Simulated scan of single mutants.
Amino acid sequence: MFGLVKNFDVHMCSEVKGVVLLDGKPVTGAVINRSLEFAYKVEKEDVTKTDTDGRFYLPAININSKIPGDMFSQETTSQFITVTYKDETYVLWSINLRGITELVEYKSKLASLNCDLLSSKVHFTIPNLKNRNLDFSGSGICRWEKDFEIYEVDDGIDYFENF
């Protein structure tokens, strides 16, 4: 009962830094949109554009909330980051963050959200450093050299269409 009057610090998203390329060349003026939703109730959205080098930045987002004091709350933040260029929208990062604290695994990936618009959207896993048996999974067109494994390529074909 007392938790309902207490405010909690809730981490919704780490700072985001990245580069958008098209066939290896920087994309200027692409619109980056970040949508966050905590506990299916609190929504935050921000937008930026890529500079002449294709780079972009979005600050970390933290809020104060009474929601974690509710024993029935779902302490999950949906993180969804897209880029729009020439009327096409691409998913850079789509993942759920469980809990109210920043995860170093997500922070690391969001600090280098680099992509080429010609890359296919993939479903991937990144290692969970606290529980090696429970990897985190997400999707997007970004790639990383380490701590990243693709388990499915989203090629737009519905293989179950005729079932």
Rank of each mutant, 00 (worst) to 15 (best):
E43V: 15
V16A: 07
F8K: 00
E105M: 04
K109G: 04
P68M: 04
G3M: 06
V31L: 14
D154Q: 09
E161L: 15
L129D: 13
A39F: 05
D51C: 07
D23R: 08
L92M: 11
K25S: 11
I126G: 03
D51Y: 09
S119E: 10
T52L: 10
F148S: 09
G99P: 11
L129Q: 10
D116V: 02
F8W: 03
V42Y: 12
R98G: 03
N128P: 07
A30N: 03
R98V: 13
C142R: 00
L134C: 04
N64I: 02
E75L: 14
V104F: 10
G3W: 09
E88V: 09
E15R: 05
E145K: 11
R98Y: 14
V20H: 08
F72P: 00
N128D: 15
F124A: 13
T76S: 05
G69Y: 00
S108Y: 13
A39R: 04
G29K: 02
K6Y: 03
L134E: 12
N128F: 11
S65T: 04
P68Y: 03
G156S: 08
I126L: 12
R34F: 09
Y159S: 12
I95L: 15
A30F: 04
I150A: 05
S137W: 13
F124G: 13
V47E: 15
A30L: 01
E149D: 12
S120P: 13
F148K: 06
G99D: 06
W93Q: 01
D46M: 13
H123W: 13
E43L: 14
D87Q: 11
L97M: 07
G24T: 05
I150L: 10
T48Q: 02
L97D: 09
E145Q: 11
T82Y: 01
S65W: 00
I81L: 02
N133V: 00
I61R: 10
V20K: 05
L129T: 11
Q74M: 10
P127D: 05
D135S: 13
T82W: 01
D87K: 14
Y151K: 07
D46P: 03
K49G: 01
T101I: 12
T84A: 08
T48M: 01
T52R: 09
K49F: 11
C115S: 14
T89N: 08
G69V: 00
A111H: 07
C115W: 01
T125F: 07
C142P: 04
M71L: 08
I81Y: 01
E88N: 13
L22T: 05
F136G: 01
N133K: 10
N128H: 11
S120L: 10
V91P: 01
C142S: 13
F163D: 08
N114T: 04
F2S: 12
T125N: 12
S14W: 02
N114V: 02
F163K: 07
S119Y: 14
K107N: 15
T82K: 03
T82S: 06
L36C: 12
